[in-house]
Design a protein around this nucleic acid. Structure first.
Length: 905
RNA sequence: GGGCGAUUAGCUCAGUUGGGAGAGCGUCUCGUUUACACCGAGAAGGUCGGCAGUUCAACCCUGUCAUCGCCCACCA
């Protein structure tokens, strides 16, 4: 083995290429195996690997590698999402930079450019995933706009349309004036901004014939943040019980600047507390107003075009002005006319487009919608009855609340890049739904005769529509041409979905609904939602803050495994994680540690022999190690259970086991055996340690695949392996098949006892400032005691690890010459003996009295528990009581001993 | 406004049926004992946000307050 582990990109790529070329990632190789499926959340084709992807895919990779080793036929299906808006923006930007006049570009031409762009750049992120070690089946890579998936999208649309769940309607939608498309409610981000609230006087208009002026008021004052929309006003609404205004209901006022006469109406939805209690109603530009306008059968006047500039419904001088320009112009005009009663700053929230970042405009347009009610109900039920488990379970509430209040989903987008809506219109606007233009024409001709002319709907579908089908569209659903029903049958439903909680509604819920609708079953049994990654200060990573870390860069500096381990160790369910480079550095050290432990074993000529039966070893040390290894294996298995998904738990158990137990204790205790042991002991140590190390490597592999595979590949320990052996396809350590004899427990206790003793000596010598190997610890108070025998059996180990160069009866030692210390451990006590003259008696005294304080305070607590007046004995369960009795006994003994020692000092 | 979460060692955070307060980093002391100084040994440091309650027993359960954060709704 090399002295240093090489985690450079090139070195890791060699390992990855080997995995890929040996076919380790492929599914379906052995049909006897139980399938295990994970669908990778498809990253945007425009994407570059960011730290969130790194976390997401590391967790998936861990699950897949683990299952693969446990003998499952794993399908981890990768792919990319066409990302309608993001891609179209990028391509447009590039074309613009290349000097292309976008306004003259045909749809077809634009799409050609987009496909070229996709072919050129669309796979970068998939390449980056390889760097991360992602063991997905690249042969199954899909793209949301590839042939098969496009067909699935059309098929899904047509079925929903046929069932009247998809419909076209003129509605107020969230309109992005920069992207010039409708977007869904979920793509709206509220932003708090400082605006100006205007109090505007609307002159009352009284019809002399109908009634007299009801009061001495001549105006009604409304409050608005959006004075520029007054051109679209169709009413002023007040609360029916509002004494200030109710006498005005039924009368009219006029819209300033236009003089248009509008009614004053009453509606309970008006909040008397806000503004002036009088609300201008602009149904085409406000969601509440839309509802009120509809219920009062009011007209809807759109005054904006698709860029949110004023249109020809407004007086000439305002036409073509942007919202912002219009606002100031209107305010100025109102002021001039004396209708602006007041204007002042006010903080309020304004909906912005998630993508474009500009303020959105509610806009009245014809759009396609999916009615979500019945779909949502089933999705809700499936989680309620446990068919799909959401982890962490915290999300159940959120899930329920969202689905119970779900609104129709606007699925049409005024874009070119995406799945075009499979609807054609006849000259007179009749809808024809069909899978292709030919089919549509055929259908139309049958219905309307040969002369019918069709035009396809211009819009494309929301990107999330195709994503919603991902768990089954990727497996050949509705794709007759490549009909491979076996894939769907075998790998659907999937086992686990790993994703961020930020797309719970966008994606997870919609996959659920679509899958239940089309497949009749849930798309995944478990959804594991990991947290968001923040910077060291807890801030979200964003380009504007400049705190975005590049995972590729981190991997170049610390190795992939170190990054993976860091992400895993910090990924506690339900809690955001802060990424610090210090942690990555520490985990890089862990990788080095592991590498060096392999080198150590190699230097000792340890050799893995698959025929070696570990259950036949005689050395207590190896038995102890095996038992501990089996414990850890069980813990990892439990933590990696799909229904648990405690990645950090698994990671930290392994981390500490490797560093503290395997390296810190086992290997250290092996050293004296290799140095002073008998030939038999050495042989057993070489075989056992290699066997145990191999077990360890396998548990580690899902978490740190590169270094473990590299060790397996290069260490002499495994020189007996065959050419086609790889750790990635090695069989997981089967703890159940390893049965250890009952009497091993004694060995395990024995080693723990010795370890405790060593710890005690170390602590003591350090406290007393004893350096180097000068300690001569002591006799027992009873030389024939069992303890003495036990230590004698481990003499070399204890000497080596505790730094002792002599052991035995010290009663006859010359205390002036020998440095001897008081030593207390279980059967070992040396009251009154051992402190050399001139030694730091005070330090020793302090230490002992500290211990005494510790035990006596413990004893106090326990005494109180066993107070005859107390209810502990009466009420506590028996096992707790007896455990406490033992503790009490121990405390009494310890206090006794320490008191004696103190007295002697 | 509605909902959810957080508050534990100097820092970042674990702590899954209520019965031992822990890790990493940092700090201090010591150590080049034949894998590793990207190392080893040891130590210091916390009334587990405040208050009240349930219980024999509370970091853990209930209530309440304080501070912080997230999600949903909201352009009067």
């Amino acid at each position: 083995m090399e002295k240093h582990y090489d985690f450079s990109a090139e070195a890791e790529r060699l390992i990855y290429d080997d995995w890929e070329s040996c076919g380790a990632f492929r599914c379906g190789v052995d049909s006897n195996k139980e399938p295990y499926t994970i669908m990778m959340p498809p990253p945007n084709v425009t994407g570059r690997l960011h730290i969130g992807h790194a976390l997401d895919n590391t967790l998936q990779d861990i699950l897949v590698r683990y299952r693969r080793m446990r003998g499952f036929d794993c399908l981890w299906l990768p792919g990319t999402d066409h990302a309608g808006i993001a891609t179209q923006s990028l391509v447009s930007k590039q074309l613009f930079a290349d000097g292309v006049d976008l306004s003259k570009l045909s749809r077809e031409n634009f799409l050609n450019h987009s496909w070229n762009w996709k072919d050129k750049y669309g796979n970068i992120i998939l390449q980056q995933l390889r760097r991360l070690g992602a063991s997905c089946d690249w042969d199954r890579t899909r793209f949301t706009m590839d042939k098969g998936l496009s067909r699935s999208v059309r098929y899904a649309f047509l079925r929903l349309y046929g069932d009247n769940l998809i419909y076209r309607a003129e509605r107020l939608v969230n309109w992005d004036p920069q992207l010039k498309t409708a977007i869904s409610d979920l793509e709206v981000r509220q932003q708090t901004v400082l605006g100006k609230i205007c109090f505007i006087d609307y002159p009352l208009v009284f019809d002399k014939e109908l009634c007299a002026q009801p009061s001495n008021l001549s105006i009604i004052t409304i409050a608005t943040m959006r004075p520029e929309t007054l051109f679209g006003d169709v009413a002023v609404a007040v609360h029916p019980d509002d004494d200030r205004y109710k006498h005005l209901v039924g009368h009219h006022c006029s819209v300033p600047l236009t003089g248009r006469k509008i009614p004053i109406i009453a509606d309970v939805r008006v909040d008397r507390e806000r503004g002036t209690g009088a609300l201008k109603i602009t149904p085409a530009h406000d969601f509440l107003d839309f509802d009120i306008g509809r219920d009062h059968s009011l007209a809807m006047i759109s005054v904006f075009d698709k860029r949110a500039c004023l249109n020809d419904k407004v007086p000439g001088i305002y036409r073509g002005l942007s919202r912002e320009q219009a606002r100031s112009s209107v305010v100025a005009a109102l002021e001039t006319q004396g209708l602006l009663r007041e204007i002042r700053d006010e903080i309020h929230s304004v909906p912005h487009g998630e993508r474009s970042g500009v303020a959105l405009e509610p806009r009245l347009t014809k759009q396609w919608f999916i009615g979500m009610g019945s779909l949502a109900k089933r999705a809700l039920q499936s989680v309620e009855n446990g068919n799909t488990i959401l982890l962490p379970q915290i999300w159940h509430n959120t899930w329920r609340r969202w689905l119970e209040n779900i609104q129709p989903w606007c699925i049409s987008r005024q874009l070119w890049w995406g799945h075009r809506i499979p609807i054609w219109y006849t000259q007179d606007g009749k809808e024809i739904a069909a899978d292709s233009e030919e089919a549509a024409l055929e259908q139309a001709q049958q219905k309307f005769g040969k002369n019918v002319i069709l035009t396809q709907d211009e819009d494309v579908l929301d990107t999330w529509f195709s994503s919603a089908l991902w768990p089954f569209s990727t497996l050949g659903w509705a794709d007759e041409q490549f009909a491979d029903v076996s894939m769907l049958q075998r790998y659907f439903p999937t086992n686990v979905l790993v994703t961020g909680f930020d797309i719970l509604f966008f994606w997870v819920a919609r996959m659920m609904m679509m899958s239940l609708y089309f497949m009749g079953q849930v798309p995944f049994k478990v959804v594991y939602m990991h947290a968001l990654i923040r910077d060291t200060k807890g801030r979200k990573m964003s380009k504007s803050l400049g705190n975005v870390v590049n995972p590729i860069d981190l991997m170049n500096r610390y190795g992939c495994d170190a990054l993976r381990l860091t992400l895993v160790l910090q990924s506690v369910p339900g809690r955001d994680l802060r990424l610090s480079e210090k942690r990555i550095e520490g985990n890089r050290n862990f990788i080095t540690k592991l590498w060096n432990s392999a080198r150590f074993l190699e230097m000792q000529d340890c050799c893995y022999d698959k025929n070696f039966d570990i259950t036949k070893v005689s050395g207590a040390l190896h038995r102890w190690m095996l038992v501990r290894l089996l414990e850890v294996t069980a813990k990892v298995e439990r933590a990696l259970d799909d229904k648990i998904c405690m990645f950090h738990e698994a990671g930290s158990v392994i981390y500490h086991f490797v560093w503290d137990v395997f390296c810190g204790k086992y290997l250290e205790m092996l050293k004296p055996i290799f140095s002073f042991g008998s030939a038999d002991e050495k042989v057993e140590a070489r075989l056992s340690s290699a066997w145990l190390f191999y077990g360890l490597l396998r548990i580690l592999h899902p978490f740190v695949p590169f270094v473990t595979e590299k060790i397996f590949f290069t260490a002499e320990i495994f020189s007996a392996k065959t050419d086609d052996e790889r750790l990635i396809i090695a069989q997981w350590l089967d703890a159940d098949s390893i049965i250890v004899a009952d009497d091993w427990k004694n060995d395990v206790d024995e080693v723990e006892w010795i370890l405790g003793l060593i710890g005690e000596v170390r602590s003591l010598r350090s406290c007393l400032g004893l350096v180097s190997k000068i300690i001569t610890p002591l006799r027992c108070d009873d030389l024939t005691s069992l303890a003495e025998t036990r230590v004698a059996a481990w003499a070399t180990v204890v000497r080596s690890l505790a730094g002792i160069d002599w052991m035995g009866d010290n009663r006859n030692k010359d205390r002036n010459k020998e440095k001897v210390i008081v030593f207390i451990y279980d059967g070992f006590v040396s009251p009154g003996l051992g402190l050399p003259l001139g030694f730091e008696i005070e330090q020793a005294k302090n230490r002992v009295s500290k211990q005494f304080d510790y035990w006596s305070s413990k004893l106090k607590v326990l005494n109180k528990k066993f107070d005859p007046e107390g209810k502990f004995v009466k009420n506590a369960p028996e096992n707790i009581v007896s455990a406490n009795k033992l503790k009490h006994l121990e405390a009494v003994n310890q206090c006794d001993r320490l008191a004696r020692i103190l007295a002697d000092l």
